[in-house]
Structures are given as structure tokens and as C-alpha cells.
Design a protein around this nucleic acid. Structure first.
Lengths: 240, 240
DNA sequence: GCCTAGGTCCCGTGA
DNA sequence: TCACGGGGCCTAGGC
């Protein structure tokens, strides 16, 4: 059955829109609603947004998105496991709910300008090609000398009591080295993460073994430099 | 001029769809396209996604969103400062670009099932009501004894060389206390953050002054407990 | 399910 | 503008 069997709606009455959304939900179709609505969310926090023109999208997996006019992030959203579609007081009411954690997102349309829908085929994944921290790790493992001459990489994601070190190895004089990688400009959290791992390794590899810490990133902020210096760690600039 | 002047489209030809999207862009309207497309992004990373049925949304601020069938996050997106709309080889081509950082998102529609649009009025903000870290800070400042009996809160966001401490105060015996707040279950990063601040305060308040660190959150993970213990800091359970 | 860390994170706030 | 830290973060990978 073709989707032209469900043509878009223009200024539908609430009952007509409700039937349209229910049909989309049952067909596991994309559905978009353009109109004036207000929104209430209750769950991890609580929020309310008064009447405004918004774009509301229902996805085949029951994700409900509410977009205001600006910004890439939805104003509200819910990866729901159930969606109720009702008409109350002459308004279309979408109530999306989820358990664990208990959440509810409720959209009330005062008026709907347009509604559209399309059944979806199966999805494919996007292919990431470059620029991630994983790519930086590949580079370092393939050519450890990028960190410093004589550096040998012995393990990736080496476990410590404080968590996994991105790259663990030894320098030209045999000292243990923990390497923390960041694909983008590094902040103080990266320096602290490195310190956690170095401390854990010092305890792990015998009594207070000599362990160096190196933060590898394209760049780092001034405060990050200070935290590194304070802890006696180093910085190496490297692009992913 | 009413939006019924731009009725939705059903299975439009590429040129017709292009005109529709251009019109939406110029009116600063919401516009949604449902159809089969492939997507390429180049900027902070690089990605490509082959043909599939997707929902593409253009917002009045030139945010372009590409949604696949599942998940709350868009497969690709761009907060663009320019959008080119073209027809090439019988396909609708949307090219969104941005400078600083230089990014490009290109969506090529093989076929479009439906297109819809709505001009938007001005936007209003959502009102967050409860459950945030800011709420937890209010609670603690209003009733410092929630941290521990006799605790006095002296400053919020007190600056240190390592960054601002959420709450700074003194305990019943006059010792300085740094409090790090988390509104949700705390992880190791929270413990490290606290350590950074305590270390900075010890240096700041005279030679190695006596400074306690307390992590306040609804709960914390086991590894976080260990990092706290290692650094001699404490945990207090408190809901926002 | 929980824990851990990355992200084209986005976003607000302050210097 | 950058820097810093929060987020209903989301998502992937382990266990």
C-alpha cells in the first residue's frame, strides 16, 4: 500500500489529526505535525512550555520530538514505549510515556496547520570516517613514536582500578607511561582523568612505581596546562 | 498571508520541492521533508550514510536535521548559516554550510514522498522547574546542615585556580570544606573534580591548609567511592 | 541491568 | 571570543 493513501493534512480537525497520528503509529511511520501547542514533561526533571508554533515529530520507534524555532536540540523529547493519542476540549493530545525511568511527555495542540507521514523502510547505519578519538588511538598504536621517540605502546584500554587507560606503554628508558587521548582541545577533566590513571598505576605496578603521564590532544586549555604541571604530567600535541 | 497558501506537497518533482524549500527558508518557516535520501557530513569529523527513508527538518534558524527511523538523536545535523537548494541529476540537493568551524552537510533526495511547511511566530523558552544541580545548590545554601550538622556555607561558586567550587564553607570545628554537587548519580569524574578543587584550596589558603572535600549527590558509583577514599574525601547522599 | 567514557556533544555563564 | 562545567545529556562498549 502506497503512502499516497495517507496524504498530508491541512488544518485538520483534532479528531482527524488524531486518526492520522494513530495510523502512523500503527504503521511505524514517520509523522510530523506543524502547529501551535504547549508542552509538559515530567520525569528526570519537570518542565513546561507555553503555547507556540512548533514542529512535533513522531518516529517509528515511538521517539517523540518537540522542536521550537531555533537550535539543533529539541525543546522536549522522549524515547517512549507508549503513545496515547486523544482529543480533549477540542485539542489534539499526545501523551508519550516510558517506564524505567518513569517519564511522561504531553503535547497539546491548540491548532494544527499541517500533518505529514511516511512509512519507513529498514534503517542503515552511518559510517564515520575520521576525526574521532578512536582514529587518534589508531595513529598512536600504529606509530608510537608520535608520542615521543622511543615510546613503545604495550596495551590499549589497559584496565586499572581507576578505569581504563587509553594507551599504556614504556618510554626509551623503560619507564611506564600512561597516555590519555583527546580528539579535540583538552580541558581540565582530561588532566584529572590522566592523574587518576597514573595514581592507580603507581599503586598497581608495585609500591609507588615510577609512572609518567602524557596527555595527547590537538591542544589544551591554559588551566589544563596548570593541572598537568601541578601533577608532573606532560602534554603532546597531535591531531586525530 | 496564510500558510494554507503553501499546502503540503505529495511526491513532488525535485524542482517543485526545491522551490518549496527555498520559500520556507525565505519565510523563516519550519519545513519537513519525508523521503529517500543519502547524507554526507564533513566538518569536525566526516560521515556518510547511504540511501534510506528519512525525515529531514529545516528550522527557521537554518538548523538542518536528518533523522533516521530510530533514536532521539538526529543521524546528522548542522546549525547552518547558509543553505543552498539545488536540483542536480533529477535529485533535490540540500547543502547546508557553516563557517567557524567550517562544516558542510549535504542531503540528496532520490525521492520525496511529502513536504510540509509552517511559518513560525516568535519563540518562548521552556521553564525548568525542578531536579537540577541548581536546585540542589539552593537546598544546600538554604539548609547547610543537610551536608552535616554544624556546616556553614560561606560562598557558592567560590573561585580557585582550578575552577569554581560549588559550595565553600566551614565545618563545626572551623575547617574549610569544599562541596561538589551532582544532581544525579555521581561518577569518577565528580570525585576528580572535587580533588582538583581541594588541592587548589589547600595551596590557596596558606601552606597546605586543612581542607575537607565532600561530594554531595543522590548516590555514587563504587569506583567513585574508591577514588574518594583514596583522596580522603567524603560522600553525602542528598536528592535535588 | 550498571558502570565507564566519548561526543560533529549542546548549552549557558562569565571573563 | 574562549573557557569551563552541567545535561532529562545520548550512545557505545563491557561486564
Amino acid at each position: 500500500m502506497s503512502d499516497t493513501d495517507r496524504p498530508p493534512l491541512v488544518a485538520p480537525a483534532p479528531a482527524e489529526a488524531a486518526a492520522y497520528v494513530r495510523d502512523a503509529r500503527e504503521r511505524r511511520a514517520f509523522c510530523t505535525l506543524l502547529g501551535r501547542c504547549h508542552v509538559a514533561y515530567d520525569g528526570r526533571t519537570t518542565s513546561h512550555a507555553g503555547p507556540a508554533d512548533r514542529l512535533v515529530a513522531l518516529k517509528p520507534d515511538l521517539t517523540l520530538l518537540v522542536h521550537a524555532a531555533d537550535g539543533p536540540k529539541p525543546q522536549n523529547w522522549l524515547a517512549a514505549d507508549a503513545l496515547d493519542v486523544d482529543v480533549a476540549d477540542g485539542a489534539l493530545l499526545l501523551t508519550a510515556t516510558r517506564e524505567s525511568p518513569t517519564e511522561e511527555l504531553c503535547v497539546t495542540f491548540e491548532s494544527i496547520e499541517q500533518a505529514a507521514a511516511m512509512a519507513a523502510d529498514e534503517t542503515d547505519a552511518t559510517v564515520e570516517i575520521s576525526g574521532t578519538e578512536a582514529d587518534l588511538k589508531e595513529r598512536v598504536l600504529a606509530d608510537p613514536a608520535l608520542v615521543e621517540p622511543g615510546f613503545r605502546a604495550l596495551a590499549a584500554e589497559r584496565d586499572t582500578p581507576a578505569g581504563p587507560v587509553d594507551v599504556f606503554g614504556r618510554d626509551s628508558s623503560g619507564r611506564a607511561v600512561a597516555v590519555e587521548l583527546k580528539a579535540t582541545r583538552a580541558g581540565p577533566d582530561a588532566a584529572s582523568q590522566l592523574s587518576r590513571y597514573v595514581d592507580a598505576l603507581r599503586r598497581d605496578l608495585h609500591a609507588d612505581a615510577d609512572v609518567r603521564g602524557i596527555l595527547v590532544a590537538p591542544s589544551c586549555t591554559p588551566r589544563t596546562r596548570r593541572v598537568l604541571a601541578r601533577d608532573g604530567h606532560e602534554f603532546v600535541s597531535l591531531e586525530p
